[in-house]
Nucleic acid binder design. Structure first.
Lengths: 343, 343
DNA sequence: TCTAACTATTGCATCGATGCAATTTGTCGC
DNA sequence: GCGACAAATTGCATCGATGCAATAGTTAGA
């Protein structure tokens, strides 16, 4: 019942273990008849190389760890899907770890797990990692930060230009004539890189238009999920002077906000224009469909995998890479109305 | 730069490798001072056991493969998240493979990968696997079917009672007084177990109510995604005699259908009541919120992991287990209207 | 025919850990 | 003080593969 090994194949074919290994690995100097004979034995026994043994010997696992906050957040689900695809295409498997917002767990995964499990590299969409954490890392496995930026850290980083994207989204709303433009999900803690950058973009758009920012319309949220968007929107609509537009820092926030606004009888976008961020599929099927910032997720996945592959395979610890992938603003009904939708 | 091994620790502590191993594994017969001394060396060097080596020696990897069609389908994303959580809690890591609807790839993953990579077990939400495939599997790693049933196969199977669930959903619509109740996602191919079972439940509900089934209202779809729901709904609404209710075999189908219905100006549920299946989070935040069959996903995940753990750890190849986890019908606005929503 | 120069094949050590059995150390009883 | 016995520690083989260097086998040239 136990799986056949090189030895079994060698015995059956009447050759040495090493020769079988050579055949398996397509080593050049094996005569044709020998190759055929060994291959026959391999097929007979249904031999498959044992990767654990191979990896132990070669010191690598061809496994990349992917650490994300939660898999059921559509943005991550979509991204993870693409990353797995990219990795598979290059012969790597992906092991996923969820932090569930648990900072301690995140740190442990990044710091300890790689050398223990033998990950060749770690792609992490960080939650609360600090530059100091990264400094004190001993593991030789390269680490790549995806999305969230960690200021002053020396790790490779792949992301879109959050400031520009947020500025464009806000500018779009300003361009529509809105003036009371709320922002949901703004910076609460300066270590939250994404919020900081998007908040900056939001402010820049007002500055560029020569308009003042109403700080009271900037609502921070604990996370970027639907219920937080719903709660924030409720608070905004309870005001005496509610906003006429909202830029939400994630599509989920926007969908939560949309639900609240609709249930209060507001018309979107007439009474309230809405822009999200991430371009998750839900936003393409909501009613109304959601205007959003669409990161090039395929590009993010490709860059992430390619960058970490390079680090793994050529291992130079050169200067950290800072890669920016493109994004675009997708205009849909939640800001334009039934009229025009670009995608 | 290279990670410290047992040997390094042993050298530093001035003891044998074996003793260090004993300390690491909490072997009972190690004196306290010895334990302290070795532990100090371990901490000094930052030693972590190399799992590849350990696994090779012990013949198991503590890795479970999870094969799903696609990660960005919310139902799978939610389920995968729970499964990873359950597995982590029991010391297993999860390696995810996506089949992307590629049947060949699915077969290969199930048949070949386990013994190659050394998976201890495989949880698969099958796409097009046949009983014959499972028969001819050589790998000793246990396999567990999640959700989709493969008739006449001898593998463990964890799922909800699809027939009953579909019957209840349909009965709910009948109970609301609807009579032209369409079904989107019905059986097209008898090998598609899920569709077969849900279709059966749909028919049973009509039979139980003494009503005839209008076959022309039963629409098959290639998959269970939003766009298929949208397409099916479009076709239904283009009829001279459109339905007054629709039971969609997935929430995504329902959301796609909802989008189409709303954009045509129909009122939900007044003109068209809608019931989905899966209870994905989107349905709780759509407008209107979606009535749906809610499988106990946490229960599914727990049963799946526990069942395969048992197989892995006690390895008896007893009779295959058939585990049914609970479900309930969650009533929301898409069938009840603004009035009552149970959850 | 004999040696040089390859080439195909093989044997041995090794990756880092654990299983098992042997060995050393320590404790007691008499 | 010595043998017996249990407890703590250690050595060796091993998991299944690959790296490296040696060996056997072939061909060619003189």
């Amino acid at each position: 019942m136990t799986a056949p090994t090189l030895r079994d194949v060698a015995e059956r074919a009447g050759v040495s273990i090493r020769t079988v290994s050579n055949v398996v690995n397509g080593y050049a100097k094996v005569t044709e008849p020998m190759k055929v004979r060994v291959q026959a034995a391999i097929d007979d026994l249904g031999y498959r190389p044992n990767l654990m043994a191979r990896n132990l010997k070669q010191g690598r696992s061809r496994i990349i760890a992917l650490v994300v906050p939660a898999l059921d957040v559509p943005y991550f689900a979509e991204l993870v899907r693409l990353i797995i695809g990219e990795a598979q295409a290059h012969g790597y498997a992906v092991l996923i770890d969820q932090t569930d917002g648990d900072v301690e767990r995140e740190r442990e995964l990044i710091m300890e797990a790689p050398q223990a499990v033998g990950f060749d590299g770690v792609i992490v969409s960080p939650l609360a990692l600090t530059a100091a954490d990264l400094e004190s890392r001993r593991s030789p496995a390269p680490i790549l930060l995806l999305g969230e930026k960690i200021f002053d850290s020396a790790a490779d980083h792949v992301a879109i230009d959050n400031v520009t994207a947020a500025r464009e989204a806000t500018a779009h709303l300003i361009g529509l004539g809105r003036r009371r433009i709320a922002a949901i999900g703004v910076e609460q803690d300066p270590s939250d890189g994404t919020a900081v950058l998007r908040t900056r973009g939001y402010r820049e758009a007002f500055a560029a238009a020569g308009l003042p920012v109403d700080e009271s319309l900037m609502v921070p949220t604990p996370h970027y999920e639907r219920r937080h968007g719903a709660a924030a929107m409720t608070a905004l609509l309870d005001r005496a002077d509610p906003p006429d537009a909202v830029f939400c820092f994630s599509d989920l926030l926007a969908l939560g906000a949309m639900r609240v606004a609709l249930s209060r009888g507001l018309r979107i976008p007439e009474d309230l224009a809405l822009v999200g961020f991430d371009d998750i599929e839900d936003g393409r099927y909501s009613t109304p469909t959601l205007t959003t910032v669409a990161p090039d997720k395929q590009g993010l996945a490709r860059s992430a995998v390619e960058t970490i592959r390079t680090r793994i395979e050529s291992g130079q610890d050169a200067t950290p890479l800072e890669i920016t992938t493109p994004h675009r603003l997708v205009l849909r009904e939640s800001s334009l109305g039934g009229a025009g939708a670009t995608a």
